[in-house]
Design a protein around this nucleic acid. Structure first.
Length: 396
RNA sequence: GGCGACGUGCCCAAGUGGUUAAGGGAGAGGCCUGCAAAGCCUUCAUGCAGCGGUUCGAAUCCGCUCGUCGCCUCCA
């Protein structure tokens, strides 16, 4: 089966286009966001700015060094903000500096001897402008032209716009071939905000609230990166039930694999098709909604077959689950229900006692045991192969 | 005010010109079960924010209106 072409929306050309790398099998990808603490680049910043000034793209004033936006023909290409005057009537006041040639010119170096950040430069003590760091580091580590540049939608303007202006003015050629931006996540229909308590870290959700890590991943994937998503507790609960479904699917497949019943492979063809459709969805601008839907249809194909599961069918099913997990990372393949240091013999004993009660038709006793285990977060399932139990997912 | 994105059933969400508008959740009915759980089956939008327009044909293209979200050049 041919590998589909990977296509991705490009903010600059405003189209979904194939991601073509400069070098085969080598992606030069810069993403803004993570704050990495490593060697400083002050020297590189200074060199970069000296070149821009020498080429007439930047100028010095008493307050700093500014980029001359009139020298960059492609200004506004990313964001559509081409009219500097319209920015002047912005809701938020633009700081007007009489020293600047144009209000649209942005800072490359700020002179400020009282600022927390202090470095020496040919223009005096101060600190570099925000945008310069990404331009310089991208060039240092990835080269003058990179394949892919990403970040949140809030960075399109001014940050990425300014980066592009600086880098292309510095090198004289294209800075980046493909721009991707993720939309923001809302929480329960509102802007995420620390002060409103609508802001969670992954760690808080997983460690404090007991959210299954895969459920969190599933929830975040349920809406493609290219659309604003509303993150809700309902969504997290839905996602948890999907992960539970996958876990059950894995259990059923493993059981059938162990039995290895004779028979034809009744599911391989359907599962191959669904996997291809899942992959195709991911390749078309990372359409995770469709990918998750197609993958989930695969679990239905598997569950439908379980009554007469052959070893061959189980094997195809396992392959499907492994490949889906490789692609989407949502299948709890080897869920370990036993926890180190926890003794499950009491639970096993109660389950045995209930089985005996059931055999004696003492259903009152059997139900009482089931209720008690339920209180302790244990869920029972009577299957043709006997009673299995599992720890229930945390209530969210 | 400018720029950008978005509005599809009770909820999430796919679909971007052409047979019956994916998929999931919830709800309803059924199978299985001692009863459950899990799973399976059936059912669930003559309509895609509203109003116009283009077209043989539009959720999909164009215009306007309403609503939501993001950004607006010295926070990073």
């Amino acid at each position: 089966m041919d590998m589909p072409v990977f296509r991705l929306y490009d903010t600059l050309s405003r189209t979904v286009k194939t991601l073509v790398t400069l070098e085969p099998n080598h992606l030069r990808f810069y993403s803004c966001g993570p704050t990495v603490y490593s060697y400083a680049h002050i020297g590189n910043f200074r060199t970069f700015l000296e070149k821009l000034i020498a080429d007439g793209h930047a100028y010095e004033t008493p307050t700093g060094v500014y980029f001359d936006t009139t020298t960059f023909a492609r200004r506004g290409a990313l964001s559509g903000n081409t009219d500097a005057d319209s920015l002047r009537v912005a809701v938020r006041d633009v700081v007007v500096d009489d020293n600047k040639k144009s209000p649209a010119d942005f800072a490359l170096w700020k002179k400020d001897e009282k600022h927390l950040m202090q470095w020496y430069s040919p223009w005096g003590w101060g600190f570099p402008g925000w945008h310069i760091e990404c331009s310089v580091m991208a060039m240092q580590y990835l080269g003058e032209t990179i394949d892919l540049h990403g970040g949140g939608e809030d960075l399109v303007f001014p940050h990425h716009e300014c980066e592009m202006a600086q880098s292309e003015s510095r090198t004289g050629h294209s800075f980046c071939e493909h721009w991707v931006h993720t939309k923001f996540l809302q929480f329960e229909g509102e802007k995420m905000s620390k002060s409103k308590g609508t802001f969670f870290t992954a760690r808080e959700l997983i460690d404090d609230k007991g959210v299954h890590p895969l459920a969190l991943r599933y929830a975040l994937m349920s809406v493609p990166y290219s659309k604003p998503a509303n993150f809700t507790m309902d969504l997290l609960r839905d996602s948890t039930s999907k992960i539970d479904r996958y876990a059950e699917c894995v259990r059923v497949v493993n059981e059938a694999l162990a039995k290895g019943a004779a028979g034809e492979d009744a599911v391989g063809e359907d599962l191959d098709r669904l996997y291809q459709e899942t992959l195709a969805a991911m390749c078309e601008d990372l359409n995770t909604s469709v990918a998750l839907a197609k993958a989930l249809e695969g679990t239905s194909v598997i569950f439908r077959e379980t009554a007469l599961f052959s070893g061959a069918s189980a094997s195809s099913s396992q392959k499907f689950l492994l490949k889906i997990n490789e692609l989407l990372g949502i299948v709890p393949m080897d869920e370990d229900t036993t926890e180190p240091g926890r003794d499950d013999s009491e639970i096993d004993g109660l389950v045995k006692e209930r089985d005996a009660a059931k055999a004696n038709k003492d259903f009152a006793r059997a139900d009482a045991i089931r209720a008690e285990l339920g209180q302790r977060g244990i869920e029972l399932r009577d299957t043709p192969e006997g009673t299995v139990w599992r720890r229930k997912s945390a209530e969210i």
